[in-house]
């Protein structure tokens, strides 16, 4: 009798605590790989490595970071990059999604072809685009380096010096290498945004579109007053996730431009790498990481608010 009672109780205990055991490994891994390092980075940003070990230096890392001329410039580069990258990807993605959002005989075929870039690693995308513009030998260089098109000497994308900025130090207009980097990044992100917007467009009931056409709205008006408002939350999510991926993607900069020519494509994510692993200034790099992370958290918070995940997580 006693034995059976204990067995029952253990069984019931196991049954009631099953979700706990199912979730525990995930939570432990996330605590070690995500939460602890985040706290560690905060600690690190107030430290400096001395021959005797780490020592507390207060806000000195942040002060020195802001004191670097490259920091302000890099913020400018990041801003230009994000604006171009998110803007271009969003506009093109919207247009392609509109084209695909109808009954088409070959839509499966188009979707498969269009989506191949998304599956290719950013490092490889960088190399693929680099091969096109290698000075003298790249296939695009043959066109771009033609002096008749770009006087006086033709345009060598990866080595051309950036134009003189219009407003103080803000790096606009961007260097040709930056424009090219934006094109490459947009090329890779386009499928993702297209699919996201297409999925949102397909949730719009056909009746709404048809009745608005019957009421005399032309195509532009339907897009402007019906499609865009209805997919607005998805558009915002797309902007946020593009900004996130653009801020933190570093592989393409590595393999396409390496931050150059000069520092004209040095964005914040690449700067984090070069302060941390080239100059081995971990304290200062941690300060920069915290700044990037703060922007990330703002974006994530905004996305969570907008998608109303709280309700769906019941």
């Amino acid at each position: 009798m006693q034995q059976i009672g204990i067995r029952r109780r253990t069984q019931r205990w196991l049954r009631n605590s099953l979700p706990f055991w199912l979730i525990l490994p995930t939570v432990l891994i996330l605590l070690t790989i995500q939460v602890y390092p985040a706290l560690y980075t905060i600690w690190l940003s107030f430290q400096e490595r001395k021959p005797t070990g780490w020592s507390f230096v207060g806000w000195a890392n942040f002060k020195r970071l802001f004191g670097m001329g490259l920091f302000g410039e890099s913020v400018g580069h990041t801003f230009v990059f994000l604006l171009g990258y998110a803007g271009l990807t969003l506009v093109l993605g919207f247009v392609i999604a509109l084209l695909l959002n109808r009954k088409l005989r070959f839509s499966g075929f188009y979707v498969t072809l269009l989506f191949i870039p998304w599956i290719i690693a950013d490092i490889i995308v960088g190399i693929v685009f680099r091969l096109l513009v290698v000075p003298d030998y790249g296939l695009l260089s043959g066109i771009l380096q033609n002096p008749a098109l770009f006087p006086p000497n033709g345009l060598s994308v990866l080595t051309a010096v950036p134009p003189r900025p219009w407003l103080g130090d803000f790096p606009f207009p961007p260097a040709p290498a930056m424009i090219y980097l934006i094109l490459a990044a947009a090329w890779r992100a386009l499928p993702f945004v297209t699919l996201l917007l297409l999925a949102a467009m397909q949730t719009i009931p056909r009746e709404i579109l048809e009745s608005s056409r019957i009421d005399g709205a032309n195509r532009g008006q339907v897009i402007r007053y019906i499609v865009i408002p209805l997919i607005l939350p998805t558009l915002v999510v797309a902007i946020f996730s593009l900004t996130l991926s653009g801020m933190n993607g570093v592989g393409m900069v590595f393999s396409l431009t390496g931050g150059g020519p000069g520092s004209s494509t040095e964005v914040l994510s690449y700067m984090l790498y070069s302060i941390g692993w080239r100059q081995l200034e971990f304290g200062r790099a941690a300060a920069l990481a915290l700044i990037i992370a703060a922007v990330n958290w703002l974006l994530i918070g905004g996305t969570l608010r907008l998608t109303g995940v709280e309700e769906r997580s019941r």
């Binding site: 979730i23 995930t26 939570v27 996330l30 790989i33 995500q34 939460v35 602890y36 390092p37 985040a38 560690y40 980075t41 690190l44 996130l244 991926s245 801020m247 933190n248 570093v250 994510s269 984090l272 941390g276 971990f282 790099a285 941690a286 990481a289 915290l290 990037i292 992370a293 990330n296 974006l299 994530i300 918070g301 996305t303 969570l304 995940v309 709280e310 997580s313 019941r314």
Partner: peptide, 25 residues
Amino acid sequence: RFLLVSILAITGVPLLTNLLALFQM
């Protein structure tokens, strides 16, 4: 709910900013 939303919030965190600490660890 707290766990689910936290896990979702972590989803957005890129590898990049944690990399210094992970390197030290």
